[in-house]
Amino acid sequence: TGSPVPVLSATLVQVVKNANTLGIAIEGGANTRQPLPRIVTIQKGGSAHNCGQLKVGHIILEVNGISLRGREHKDAARIIAEAFKTKEKDHIDFLVVEPR
């Protein structure tokens, strides 16, 4: 018998910082209708678009191993912005799931 809870397979996507912008728009965060940030736009020419693996609709669970669960929108956006800005890494690791 199957599990009553649908199992979503998470995918680790590495986005190399090869453009001046990350180039994604996100919505959602704790205490909103969309409790985890969801990608709503991917801009051509940005690092995310160049990577080719992030998709509109992906829900972001973690950024560089930092969980976004329970974080409000601004906090999640800040974590992603800082991951792009830091010179300590030449890429960002996104753990994402496809929407149901």
Binding site: I26, E27, G29, N31, T32, Q34, V40, T41, H73
Partner: peptide, 15 residues
């Protein structure tokens, strides 16, 4: 605290 049936929509941030 009042329990809301619908949560508010989120703002959108471009990164």
């Amino acid at each position: 605290r009042e329990k809301r049936l619908t949560l508010p929509p989120s703002e959108i941030t471009l990164l």
